[in-house]
Simulated scan of single mutants.
Amino acid sequence: MGPGQQAAPRRGAVRHRGRRRPVDVLAQDREAVLLRQPHRRRPAGAGGGQPGRRRLPGWRNASKEGPRATVVAVDPATGKEQWRVETQQAAGVAALAVQGRHLYGVTTKGGLFVIDRRTRKVVHSADISSVSKGFAAMVTNRGAVYGVSDTTLYRFHPKTFAVSTVVAGINGAWYSGPHLNVHEGLIYTLRGGNLVAVDDRPAH
């Protein structure tokens, strides 16, 4: 290795990129815009009964009971609904991602659901609250779906949908919920207050 060269990171290795804010890029499915009915974060100033703050309407479902995490596909050209799936989750959607024929969703209570976009049926559900609870973000990279929560960077197996921890204790210092992005095979997110690049090469 010559002067100034960097060694290639090992599998799952983390490269520090300094204290920079990564760009949050949203991906749109080519066939349909996938919408969700989330359990939304309280807007700034909404408060939770704290002195000097007021509660604003609309930051959570109006009804205390009923379906959560309803997924709706909308034609991006016409704006018309194509289909919807009631996922029967106990909380709203924190993040969505598409890999092949499957749409992955994670809820704010740590529920995972996977929808087959051809049959429009939920084909898998699981409790992943050990790695993801609260707000989350997901992307697709190297044939797998990755997610990040306030505490953990994790990955789903593309066939079994089993969840694996990629980086534990990532504890990103986000002020608007966790985010992650992908560039040239590397996954970018925060660990603490530092922007990091994670090189994970799943064997599936």
Rank of each mutant, 00 (worst) to 15 (best):
M1N: 04
M1S: 09
M1R: 02
G2C: 05
Q5G: 02
Q5N: 05
Q5H: 06
Q6R: 09
Q6G: 00
A7E: 13
A8L: 08
P9N: 02
R11S: 11
R15Q: 14
H16C: 06
H16K: 13
R17N: 13
R17H: 13
R19G: 07
R19N: 11
P22S: 12
P22E: 13
V23L: 15
V23H: 13
V23P: 03
D24L: 08
A27E: 15
A27P: 00
A27F: 03
R30L: 10
E31N: 09
A32C: 07
P38M: 05
H39A: 08
G45F: 09
A46R: 01
G48S: 10
G49W: 08
G52F: 03
G52W: 06
R54V: 15
R55A: 10
L56G: 02
P57L: 09
G58S: 10
W59A: 15
R60L: 05
R60K: 10
R60P: 00
N61W: 02
N61R: 10
S63A: 13
K64S: 06
K64T: 06
E65P: 00
G66T: 03
R68W: 05
R68K: 11
R68I: 05
A69M: 01
T70W: 03
V71H: 04
V71A: 11
A73S: 13
V74H: 01
V74N: 03
V74Q: 07
A77I: 00
A77W: 01
G79C: 10
G79Q: 11
E81D: 04
W83A: 14
T87I: 07
Q89P: 04
G92L: 12
V93I: 15
A95F: 02
L96S: 10
L96R: 08
A97H: 00
A97E: 13
G105K: 02
K109G: 14
K109R: 12
G111H: 06
V114F: 03
V114K: 05
D116T: 01
R117A: 02
R117E: 00
R117G: 02
T119A: 09
T119E: 11
R120I: 06
K121Q: 15
V122G: 01
V123E: 09
V123N: 04
H124E: 06
H124M: 03
A126G: 02
A126F: 05
A126T: 01
D127P: 04
D127S: 12
S129T: 07
S132Q: 14
S132V: 04
K133L: 11
K133E: 07
G134S: 07
A136M: 01
A137T: 03
M138Q: 12
V139E: 15
V139I: 10
T140G: 06
T140R: 10
N141S: 14
N141I: 02
R142T: 05
G143Y: 12
G143H: 11
G143K: 11
A144N: 15
V145D: 05
Y146I: 10
G147R: 11
V148M: 10
D150E: 13
L153I: 13
L153N: 06
H157N: 15
T160R: 12
T160Q: 11
F161P: 03
A168Y: 02
G169D: 13
N171M: 05
G172D: 00
G172N: 03
G172A: 03
A173T: 08
S176M: 07
S176F: 08
G177R: 10
H179E: 14
H179Q: 15
H179A: 09
G185P: 13
G185I: 12
T189N: 11
L195S: 07
V198P: 01
D199Y: 02
D199R: 03
D200W: 00
P202H: 01
P202F: 00
